[in-house]
């Protein structure tokens, strides 16, 4: 298997596991990139509404060729359709609904997460800064913030750390981390390992995590 195929599979695996965070009845914001892929895995029996911060509450599937409306995009600027429940609003109202904690869940990408829930996902010093978009607002808005990312960097170093080394997107904002290897909760006592993915051992998770892990009493192994 090529490295690229491997990476794509890894992303699918994370997206599939992240889908389990969504409950029927939820209003959910999915970040740009890998989080957007979560939408492809939502089980049919779940009734939920996807929010897009550019002013769409009720993102539908991607359009067929003849269905494309250039005035209808998601926050990743991709053409989309609107779901049957959809409503539109302005950017200010969209962020009022985010900041006002009306969303149940946001699933976002991450570069680094610290054991206290700090998140860094918007800039790398020395590289050109493109901007934070809506991330800094969203991390303070949704009732639950789930970060999905690879467990380690492309150099094999941990991305879950005692303290973030990159500039923060938000302080103490993360509730749960879902990686290709494990699910880890951020709690007052520290990071709690709750699930281990197939192909990994608890020991391997500990070794590849840059902060101490408390092993949950109800730990699930080979969970996904």
């Amino acid at each position: 298997m090529s490295v690229q195929q491997d990476k794509a599979l890894q992303r699918e695996k994370i997206a599939k596991r992240a889908e389990r965070e969504i409950e029927s009845g939820f209003y959910v914001n999915l970040g740009i990139g890998m989080p957007t892929m979560v939408a492809n895995h939502i089980q049919e029996d779940k009734k939920m509404v996807l929010q897009s911060e550019n002013g769409l509450l009720g993102i539908g599937r991607s359009p067929h060729e003849g269905e494309v409306d250039p005035d209808l995009i998601n926050a990743g600027k991709e053409t989309v359709t609107a779901s049957i429940s959809a409503s539109y609003c302005s950017s200010a109202e969209s962020f009022a609904m985010i900041r006002g904690e009306h969303l149940d869940l946001a699933i976002l990408g991450g570069m680094e997460v610290a054991e206290n829930g700090d998140l860094a996902n918007w800039m790398i010093p020395g590289k050109v800064i493109k901007g934070m978009g809506g991330a800094m607002d969203i991390v303070h808005g949704a009732k639950k913030i789930v970060i999905i990312m690879n467990h380690v960097s492309k150099h094999g170093t941990p991305k879950i750390l005692k303290e973030c080394t990159l500039p923060l997107t938000g302080r103490g904002v993360v509730d749960r981390i879902v990686t290709d290897r494990a699910v880890i909760d951020v709690t007052d006592k520290g990071l709690v390992l709750t699930e281990v993915a197939e192909g990994f051992t608890v020991e391997e998770i500990k070794e590849s995590t840059g902060a101490p892990l408390i092993i949950s009493e109800s730990l699930l192994e080979k969970s996904y």
Binding site: S91, I98, R171
Partner: peptide, 26 residues
């Protein structure tokens, strides 16, 4: 931050000189 930008503009049109927001703390 995008939400702060939208609200800064909204405030500008609504006669509110400034506001507090959690976005960007720290």
């Amino acid at each position: 931050p995008q939400g702060s930008l939208a609200e800064r503009i909204r405030a500008g049109g609504a006669g509110i000189p400034a506001f507090y927001t959690p976005a960007g703390v720290g």
